[in-house]
Design a binder for these strands. Structure first.
Lengths: 209, 209, 209, 209
DNA sequence: AATGAATGAGTTTTCATTCAT
DNA sequence: GATGAATGAAAACTCATTCAT
């Protein structure tokens, strides 16, 4: 990703500083509204230095994207490895995503508002991360079906998109309502609420076939 | 919106032609990647003429956005007025959204990929359409709760976001997989699948409290 | 060459105005030292307009180059068609080149100082003009050999380069000595001098084998 | 020229290594296309180190230029000191120039393609070398005239430019045709050919006045 | 209404040069 | 001597928008 992957502390630090600044500025102004000089100013460095660590403005976005999805994939694998009940896995996943927002709402804003924006951005390399993540969510749903706790007739892939789409839309709501800081209680409550809704459905049980 | 609201046939036609061209080009290149001259070329007119009908490039996007959400709101109001069962209302809404994709995937692509992404775009005027639509979806959920067919403890607003987010994420999947043409069967099937999943939940009934 | 080859007077004029400005600025500052904004200022237009007529700064240089060599080739063909004595043809060619300097020293400066120097500039398309011109000069030499007035053993190609190289180096001398304006007498004198030297050689006749 | 003129072996070596690298890179990419970092990479050193030995990129070019013309001047003085026949002196000079190309075509390419390019480059200091060399060539011609072996009426300065220009144009031909390696036979042949042409002229003797 | 020439602000990126280590 | 991180000036080029015709 970045030119310098030396294990020098400085180099790592600077990379991180620039990325954090980029997240902040992208969140505030949007990817296209953000100038590289804004990012440099936010990072407290000369803007030429951004190009020592990254080849282009777009690479910054790609780097943020990759970090985030790689991290999400790691968490999903960890959750799956736990061998808990599938319902619990779903809750854990939702909890992780909502907590990500709490911990770094700007990063989530960038992911939702900017990454998806550039069609050109979705090249094969980047889209793979996407796919991998959804494969894992789908896997959780299938595990529930195999265990007999989730409906058989549900299309697991559809369910995966539904779960993720629900989470993302709620976070978009927070973003648009400028809810940058959100309490742990609210996060927990949102997690419970959405998990219950998705697992049990809107309709009351007897309606079920 | 547009400078000319004369009811001259020509004027209306040209407005429509430009908007359709804009949808096409925005879908292909993204809002920021699209040049006004591209849109004019697609519409088969001189690019200066775009400014006879619209004040700016952004106004094109806003116009598309408004048309779409106004239309969605109309449909939601129509659905609510039907006084059918809330479950059926949910299904109708999902069906409408998926059919919108079938009829004009580029328009949906623009709505998902471009509109949601420009922070600056969400001014008070535009956000009202958003809010109105979600208020209506929320209303449907509340009607179900009042009728005793939906769970009481569900936060209706959350549910509204979950439903819409699920739909949008599935359509994003279609977009990213380049599924520009999709059969009516697939649409119907997707509608059934998602409606059932959202209404009945993932988990099998006895798990319900 | 230019985007607009319409036969509108304005369009042609503007193209010419920009090219003349480019010649002036390239001559003054060199190709790399010249800013497109300098050229626009010299032409009295907004610099964005340069890009209406030419795709890039480099295209300006290529255009100047082409015009000049095409013109030179035309003159050579005209000279050859005259069916004069080969010696006279050589004189005419030298006369033309020196007079070109007199009429537009900046253009010659650009040709000598800038065009010849950009290695990347010599792509196949551009080099063809070069080659064509030298083929014609070579042809004149060969005509003299066939007529029996020029030495048989001389390599005609070498001779062609020698003639042209001599002319160009003398003009470079004028450029470096800042002799921007030069009288017709000087031009005629230089033509005679160089023609005689090249035709008769440095050495006095009896030395000839 | 260079900051360090210590006679330490290392220092001299490194200076030479950098200059050779610069010649190579300038020949490949042109002066303006060459990055200091390219030169450093070619030399196998850190690019900051270039600035220990040279004050600027331009100084590299000036250094190459000076070395070459100083060397040429030395050779011319040596030739003149030999007190041979002027015809032979001309031949020796041409031979030296052509052999320079054979020995280091990149250096000649830089001299022809890059040095002349930057008008700013021709400051008084640099132009003096030029002038000195041409003064010496002119001197040879004048010696021939005084000895009665060269035509009196020839302008010696013109003749000097003609000779040098012929040589340079032939070498430019080799450069443009990518003739990087050239046999000693070809060099000798070219030398004979050009010397004969310049001394005896194109035209056959009886045409002489 | 229609055209497209004209405008010029705005931004990414490059790269020579400096300097702390 | 050697390194390469850091600096920031500089410029080509783009393109939304205006406007004369």
């Amino acid at each position: 990703m970045n030119k310098k992957n030396t294990n020098s502390e400085d180099s790592i630090d600077k990379t991180k500083v620039i990325l954090d600044a980029a997240i902040q500025v992208f969140a505030d102004k949007g990817y296209f509204g953000a100038r590289v000089s804004d990012i440099a100013k936010e990072a407290g460095i000369a803007y030429g230095l951004v190009y020592h660590y990254f080849n282009s403005k777009e690479e910054l976005l790609i780097s943020i994207f990759k970090t985030r999805w790689t991290n999400f994939i790691d968490v999903l694998e960890y959750i799956i490895a736990s061998e808990e009940e599938p319902q619990e896995m779903i809750r854990k996943m939702i909890s992780f995503l909502f907590n990500s927002y709490k911990n770094n709402p700007s990063m989530i804003e960038v992911m939702i508002m900017d990454v998806a924006k550039t069609s050109r951005f979705f090249n094969d390399e980047n889209i793979r991360h996407f796919k991998d993540a959804f494969r894992l969510i789908t896997k959780i749903v299938k595990m529930g079906q195999e265990k007999g706790v989730f409906h058989q007739q549900t299309d697991a892939t559809f369910a995966a998109y539904a779960i993720y789409g629900s989470v993302e839309r709620i976070m978009l709501h927070w973003i648009l309502d400028d809810m940058k800081s959100i309490s742990q209680d609210e996060i927990n409550n949102a997690t419970d609420m959405l998990t219950t809704t998705l697992l049990n459905g809107l309709a009351i049980c007897p309606k079920n076939s």
